[in-house]
Design a protein around this nucleic acid. Structure first.
Lengths: 216, 216
DNA sequence: GCAGAAATCTGACGATCAGTCAGATCGGGT
DNA sequence: ACCCGATCTGACTGATCGTCAGATTTCTGC
């Protein structure tokens, strides 16, 4: 399934090689936690991993390729978000609970991978196809599930069809991702995440069902 | 009002100096349009401006400071967004029109300044206070206006107060900014901006008023 | 346990860029 | 024409990039 780990010149990496490679990835990830993306240098990563820059280039084309590698792992983990939007009953109180769970899922996922997601966001906005694809992989599944949900609501005639299900779903997902990505920003802005959570859930619920959430 | 333009060592720049400085900023901006942020080099900017790297350092501490300068100008222009959310009547059809205008304002503003806003977003997410302040300056005014609007709606008793006005306003603004910042992404995703616009407006309207938008 | 082979690592190098400074150049005022 | 402050730049040091040939480590068959 997953292709074997290979060095830049195509050789298959053995036990030792995989270990150093992983160590480099770990150090890179730690580096991104603490330094601005622009300031992450190969030489620092190598030093932190107790190896030489030349070794880094044995396993990765450049820093971006290495980050892409981390991002791909992340994308696998990201498939859990999809299950939160899939096959839910969006009506009534259960629907609102689903919206809350979805919001929580995004908030948590972004908390886990914040620095990587920052870079993925930037690079895909800059037009890098490889990063765009990763972002896609994470978000597209959720968007698809939400689209279906909205289509169902519209089919039942409960919601007007002035809004394209696809566009609404994409917008909601973008919103969730954006808010999740600026959690620290919100906090230092005098807005508590405790208050943002209901706002997010409410908007998701309203976007999907077209109704106010049930009072409880 | 605006402090005089100064060189790094504190001298006030004259006519000629201001011209080269501006030229450097223009070239930097053009550079950001075409190259990834991480790959923008002082030497390239200087070359494009027909001057030497040393001249660049006469006017700017580093690349970031120069971008910050551009970002500050942008923030001034961004005050037009505030007027779109301010003193609006959010009820009924007029309210929906206001929501549409606000969405359009964001979409257009982001289209004008996309590459700069990308960097501002990244840097402020990375914890750079200076960039955070710029981002704040643009978004805080809009958030404030929206907060007031929601508070008014709640005061009239038309909307439940399960949701903090501040948090809802912040969430809506984050959504607007996110969608505006991924316009190209949406397009290449089979979602047309023409369809996103109503989705955005609908969510803004529902977020502020708590109701479905009027059918028309 | 050992020789040979394969895998892995690294020192060293040329190229590029960051950032600084002293001195060259420019341009307006007299 | 001359002066003087403003402006620009060549040239330099130090850091990083990215590559390669050769050194070192690990594995394999015996």
């Amino acid at each position: 399934m997953t292709g074997q780990v290979r060095t830049v010149d195509g050789r298959v990496a053995g036990r030792r090689g995989q270990a150093t490679r992983q160590k480099l990835l770990d150090c890179l990830r730690e580096m991104l936690d603490t330094s601005p993306y622009r300031d992450v240098k190969v030489i620092d990563v190598a030093r932190m991993a107790g190896t030489s820059p030349a070794t880094f280039y044995q396993y990765f084309q450049d820093v971006e390729s290495a980050i892409l590698e981390i991002a791909n792992d992340m994308a696998k983990d990201g498939q859990r978000l999809k299950t939160l939007a899939e096959d839910q009953n969006w009506a009534g109180k259960g629907g609102f609970a689903a919206a809350e769970a979805l919001a929580d899922g995004f908030l948590e996922f972004w908390r886990d991978y914040e620095p990587i997601l920052r870079v993925v966001d930037l690079a895909s906005a800059e037009g890098d196809k490889r990063f765009y694809k990763v972002r896609q992989k994470i978000l597209t599944a959720v968007t698809g599930s939400l689209t279906e949900a909205i289509e169902n609501m519209q089919a039942k005639g409960k919601v007007g069809d002035e809004v394209q299900p696809n566009a609404m779903a994409g917008t909601l997902v973008a919103m969730l991702a954006a808010v999740a990505g600026h959690q620290k920003g919100f906090e230092s802005w005098n807005i508590k995440m405790k208050d943002v959570r209901p706002a997010l859930s409410t908007l998701v619920f309203m976007g999907v069902t077209g109704k106010k959430p049930p009072t409880r």
